[in-house]
């Protein structure tokens, strides 16, 4: 047998829908693309704990508090699965955390919007987690094995998140007129930022082409966005809430809804760091990291002693 061409092996695996594993040869750009995407995804899970964490101490019932705590704990876990998936590509946890803490790393723009009322916790679960699931279900079939496996675990856990959000929206929408108004207000503020979560439109998405070619992603931003809108309209109708888009109409010819595009200038501005909460999020994350420093130092010192003792034994 002659020398195996590593690039051909890589391409053949993609063609057969096989997974690429950490020790396999991969093009440098594939590696870079994955590190960027997976670390941003991990950061989003971690930063995503902040807007919801905001309501743990003010949840309206003990049940609501328990549910929200469990959900936020899940998000932390998702961040950890994803960080280790990225580490398998050769970047260290410290490098990623430093990039996040110094504001160099990007994360989902959605978490730079504030959660102003309890209804926002409902809207985040229903819409934001709903959109995230749509994306993550696709990523379960991503070509990079560790990423795909992390997504399978995450998807199993996410469906409770969306349902608990919708349950909050249901209680409010069928409650007093004031409660229903809260729910409508939350939908008004979260609708377009949620549509932005799928990323820029296909016509100007710089990273999509490679992601599709390498089967890191299986569908385009616009395809996922369309599916999300189609699925969500009926859920809003059930609640008796109005999606804040006059351009939203059923298109019989394409068997899907037409809808207005989000304000892409706003999207770019939030990504750049000028959203309502970008600064606050980074300050909070840096504060927790710094406050935890003595815990890490103590655990590291204790761990070192334990490991030395067990090696000596």
């Amino acid at each position: 047998m002659g020398r195996v061409n590593v690039e051909e092996v890589f391409e053949a695996k993609l063609a057969k829908n096989d997974f690429i594993e950490p020790k396999d040869w991969m093009p440098e750009n594939y590696r870079k693309h994955l590190i960027r995407q997976i670390s941003q995804h991990a950061h989003s899970e971690i930063l995503g704990m902040l807007p919801e964490g905001n309501w743990i101490s003010r949840a309206p019932s003990l049940r609501a508090k328990l549910v929200l705590l469990a959900k936020v704990q899940d998000e932390g876990g998702h961040g950890l699965y994803l960080y280790t998936a990225a580490e398998s590509l050769g970047i260290s946890r410290d490098e990623m955390l430093n990039a996040l803490l110094t504001g160099k790393a990007k994360y989902s723009s959605i978490f730079n919007y504030p959660t102003l009322s309890w209804a926002d916790v409902g809207a985040v679960g229903w819409l934001v987690d709903g959109a995230a699931i749509m994306n993550q279900v696709m990523l379960q079939r991503s070509s990079y094995g560790p990423y795909s496996r992390a997504m399978v675990r995450i998807c199993k856990e996410e469906s409770f998140h969306q349902r608990q959000g919708y349950e909050i929206m249901t209680h409010l929408s069928f409650g007093t007129p004031e409660q229903k108004a809260m729910a409508q207000d939350a939908l008004n503020r979260w609708w377009f930022p949620t549509l932005m979560m799928f990323g820029p439109p296909d016509r100007e998405s710089p990273n999509s082409e490679n992601a599709l070619k390498w089967r890191i992603k299986r569908e385009t931003n616009d395809q996922l966005r369309q599916r999300f809108v189609n699925q969500t309209v009926i859920q809003a109708e059930y609640l008796g809430l109005t999606i804040p888009d006059k351009g939203l109409v059923w298109n019989e010819a394409k068997k899907a809804y037409d809808f207005s595009e989000p304000d892409w200038a706003e999207f770019k501005n939030v990504i750049k760091g000028n959203g309502p909460c970008n600064k606050e999020r980074l300050v909070s994350r840096n504060k927790s990291h710094k406050d935890g420093e003595w815990v890490r130092a103590a655990a590291a010192a204790y761990g070192k002693k334990q490991m030395e003792a067990s090696l000596a034994a």
Binding site: L80, Y81, T84, R93, R149, A150, R153, A299, A300, Y302, G303, K304, Q306, M307, S310
Partner: peptide, 12 residues
């Protein structure tokens, strides 16, 4: 095998 994690010692 289900995944991996960081920790300072066995118990942790």
């Amino acid at each position: 095998h289900c995944g991996n994690l960081h920790a300072y010692d066995k118990e942790m």
